[in-house]
């Protein structure tokens, strides 16, 4: 297993390139690793990357550009890295351009989930991501951009079951993702729905979008709050996602170079 010896070095190289702002070169290193040692070696490298580094790298390859990392990152590592996706957003940005941020998040998630044809891998990616709070919030952000469609499909899924639903009046980009989740893991789908509509009580009230037209009509709105569960806005959800970014990872690597004694200081 001589190739295994190289993995920490490759991981270090990728980490340094990513942190230096050179995802293309990091990608080159990953491609080279794949050619020399095979895909499993890449999987191993991606698995040991620090989640914020993985996140930084993946976010550089959204949409048009494809990355080997997108295809090969282990589901768990991806779920961890999602926590850091919102790290670079500041609040003004969220306030001014929520659509742009939601769009980039969508490109990223869509790219990773549908980058693979392997049904099992896709299911695992969704399961791992939705097993975390930030993952659930991230998906909620995507769906909040198409609230009307989400309500329509949510009702369909509720009435007909996930496997018989599929058509909405306007086929929005997020619908395939919704169906993928609902068919893979129904509980996760419910969690995402509750993340968007925290006041939703199934059977008691109905999902409803926040309507901007009659925003002044307070009396009317108050009355409707009993009948309808009003969803969170994309902006609110983006803020929630931003707040879930871990403030610090396990800590920066020691610069002193002296290995720590740990508990041995008492020996």
């Amino acid at each position: 297993m001589s190739e295994n010896i190289n993995l920490p070095a490759i991981r270090q190289q990728v980490t340094e390139l990513v942190l230096a702002g050179s995802p293309e070169h990091a990608e080159d290193a990953i491609n080279e690793t794949a050619e020399k040692f095979g895909d499993l070696a890449v999987v191993e490298v991606l698995n040991t990357l620090e989640p914020h580094v993985a996140s930084l790298h993946l976010s550089a390859f959204d949409g048009g550009k494809m990355s080997l990392a997108t295809l090969l990152i282990p589901p768990k590592a991806w779920a961890e890295s999602l926590a850091y996706f919102a790290a670079t957003w500041d609040e003004d940005w969220i306030e001014d351009e929520p659509e742009v941020l939601a769009e980039s998040l969508f490109a990223h998630i869509h790219g990773v989930v549908f980058g693979t044809d392997d049904e099992e891998r896709r299911a695992e990616l969704l399961n791992e991501a939705l097993a975390t709070d930030w993952g659930t919030t991230a998906f909620a952000v995507l769906f909040s951009t198409a609230a009307e469609e989400i309500i329509e499909i949510a009702n369909d899924i509720h009435n007909l079951g996930a496997h018989r639903s599929g058509r909405t009046t306007s086929d929005h980009d997020v619908i395939p993702l919704v169906l993928e989740i609902a068919r893979t893991n129904e509980e996760a789908w419910d969690r995402v729905l509750f993340e968007i509509f925290p006041d939703w009580k199934p059977g008691e009230n109905e999902l409803h979008t926040r309507s901007e037209d009659d925003g002044d009509d307070h009396e009317d709105e108050e009355e409707r709050e009993h009948e309808y569960a009003i969803g969170r806005t994309t902006k609110e959800l983006l803020l929630r996602l931003r707040k879930q970014v871990p403030s610090k990872s396990s800590g920066p690597a020691k610069t002193g170079g002296r290995p720590s004694l740990g508990e041995d200081i008492f020996s």
């Binding site: 002193g256 720590s260 740990g262």
Partner: peptide, 14 residues
């Protein structure tokens, strides 16, 4: 100073 700071913090936690 930075190295010492990290070491002292680590020891304090232990």
């Amino acid at each position: 100073a930075s190295t010492l700071f990290h070491e002292l913090s680590g020891i304090t936690v232990l």
